[in-house]
Design a protein around this nucleic acid. Sequence first.
DNA 1: TCCACCATGTAACTGGTTACATGATTAC
DNA 2: GTAATCATGTAACCAGTTACATGGTGGA
Lengths: 199, 199
Amino acid sequence: MATQDTSVLGFALLGLIHQKPSSGYDLRKTFAETAIGNYSSSPGAIYPGLERLESRGLIRGVVEDSAGLRRRRLYRLTSKGGAELKRWLARPIEPGDVTRGAQELMLRFSFMDQASGTDATIAFLTSFRDALKSYVSGLESYLRDNAPKMTLSGRLALECGVRGYRSMHDWANYAISGYRDSRIQSTSRSAKNREGGPR
Amino acid sequence: MATQDTSVLGFALLGLIHQKPSSGYDLRKTFAETAIGNYSSSPGAIYPGLERLESRGLIRGVVEDSAGLRRRRLYRLTSKGGAELKRWLARPIEPGDVTRGAQELMLRFSFMDQASGTDATIAFLTSFRDALKSYVSGLESYLRDNAPKMTLSGRLALECGVRGYRSMHDWANYAISGYRDSRIQSTSRSAKNREGGPR
DNA sequence: TCCACCATGTAACTGGTTACATGATTAC
DNA sequence: GTAATCATGTAACCAGTTACATGGTGGA
């Protein structure tokens, strides 16, 4: 069955709406103004995208005309939508996820500490880091084997990729330590850390 | 007029065919096996893409049945196609090109030393580096202003982006020095470097 | 009054995805 | 003979782009 599956844009919408109930217009602004990744922002992408999510029961839009403002359709996650988002966030990282689209993994991460716990986030980062490591070493050995056959610009372009993924790998370690620190702070040095913490 | 413009995939095909006349199958393998960027590789993308280019007179495919092999349609650039490729490679980098798709810029770069001269490549890299610098500083100031309002994972995700673009920036400097070295080698230390060089 | 902006939508087109179909050649 | 792989293609579907349309609201 599984009606059909959610696109990356769909998950981006789900994640943003989870952070804060929003109208289509709000979401368009977010996509246009922030560096959240290169997603649409065009009305022809957002509004149909929202309709799709709503028709699948993942979000529900309610017109609010509280102030003197024009009707604004404010969307909120349904519990089904929340579950869908959580399932996406919890997906294990498969080999190949890094290759085609570390972007999507970063998008997932950026929604994590809202909807997942610190432990899950650290686990995600660890797995991401390992995947990056093996991907980088794959690229490096490819480079070692093929550098002679490649053009200068081709080789340099590959090196750019290697550096980029390596910087992501280093970032992942940095991020992990950031979460470890935040966990220590929120448990404030004592032994009694019931899971949950602030918010 | 301008029939219509070439997609990124179209330029990728043009660039690869320029490097080496290829069949659709060859190109699919290249996309599937190398880290050239995340392009199609599916037959439903490649073959129609090639047909589109051919119908616009940018490439021409000839069936070769030299060996006992099955018919293979080998594509070559036409002069019109070569001009289209050169024009794409020579496009100035506009603000915003970095934001949505450093990938495309890297693809352009990876074809450069085939079809453009060393000087043009260095100019491209310099301009790319400058664009990256200003983009990075924009992200950094956004981060400075908004860090308090952001979630931990949101902030970290942005920092990942900053690091990535900064690593590209550093790479650009590295690549520039690579081209300078190659130019020195090919003019072998003397004063008379007429532009052009090998090829 | 008119402009700018808030806010939503729609239609035509384009291109990519998945999945299927086909057939030739080579190696076992 | 049959499996793998070379090689090309096609069809149905889906999502995104551009461009246009509409209308409310607030301020000059």
